[in-house]
Simulated scan of single mutants.
Amino acid sequence: MKFPEPLVEGRLIRRYKRFLADVQLMDGSEVTAHCPNTGSMLGCKPDGARVWLSQSDNPKRKLKYTWELVETAPGEFACINTARPNSQAREAIEAGRVRELAGYSQCRAEVRYGEEKSRIDLLLSGHDSAPDAWVEVKNVTLAENGNGYFPDAVTTRGQKHLRELMGQVANGDRAVLFFLVNHTGINTVRPADHIDPAYGNLLREACAAGVEVLAYRASLAGEGGSPSGSLSLGEPVEVILAP
């Protein structure tokens, strides 16, 4: 998937109140942009970082700009907009670019399921020889020395999703945790035991119970030291579960 319009470059001044970010644009003007990320954004909001914003001309919107991308280190880019990963994953799956999830004729989003009353990101059905696949998508942007870690903060919600996925395996369906790597500096994905050890332990328990874990990287890097403006998925990324 691509952004509908060219992104606007600027420099990050600060992120605050979770949903707001002040940005200095290239012409020197300052704007307040919507920050579509409720997480800690650990490693994705360095002072003065180059950032890229999408813009909307909808007069009903309070804020014209939305923060989309950030340069976390020279030549390394991350997509911080957590509204993007589900669409990225769905597009790739429906196009047959995720080999492990090929062959399904139907894909539905936000389907209610589970004993804890969750909504699954993607439900795949209509395969000739495989059961339905319940796919939970997670955005991975925390990079440390080439390793990607999830989560970037303690997540009771993420733990709930793992329990729900295990329940679907017990029901005879497939359950898939899909790590969407939205950071060009990440070469492997690992559970962040140093941040949320309970999540890491539960993830390993889920895998032992039959939950599948996949990771694919988005193609963010462009030419000339700028991002490409494309969020298409590329090659798979190795997942390392050992603590």
Rank of each mutant, 00 (worst) to 15 (best):
A89C: 09
R90A: 14
R90Y: 10
E91I: 11
E91G: 12
E91N: 11
I93W: 07
E94H: 04
A95F: 09
G96A: 08
G96W: 09
R97I: 06
R97Y: 08
R97G: 07
R97S: 10
V98H: 01
R99D: 14
R99T: 15
R99H: 13
R99Q: 13
R99P: 05
E100C: 07
E100Q: 12
L101H: 07
L101C: 08
Y104L: 04
Y104F: 11
S105V: 08
S105H: 11
Q106E: 15
Q106G: 06
Q106L: 13
C107V: 13
C107A: 15
R108I: 06
A109V: 12
A109T: 12
A109I: 08
A109P: 08
V111R: 10
V111L: 08
Y113I: 01
Y113M: 03
G114Q: 00
E116F: 11
K117R: 14
S118N: 09
R119D: 08
D121L: 01
D121Y: 00
D121V: 03
L123E: 00
S125N: 02
S125R: 08
S125A: 06
G126M: 05
H127K: 04
H127G: 01
H127F: 01
H127T: 04
D128E: 13
A130R: 15
P131Y: 05
P131H: 04
A133N: 00
W134A: 01
W134M: 02
V135A: 02
E136I: 07
V137L: 07
N139H: 12
T141H: 05
T141I: 15
T141C: 14
L142R: 15
L142T: 06
E144L: 15
E144C: 11
N145C: 11
N145D: 15
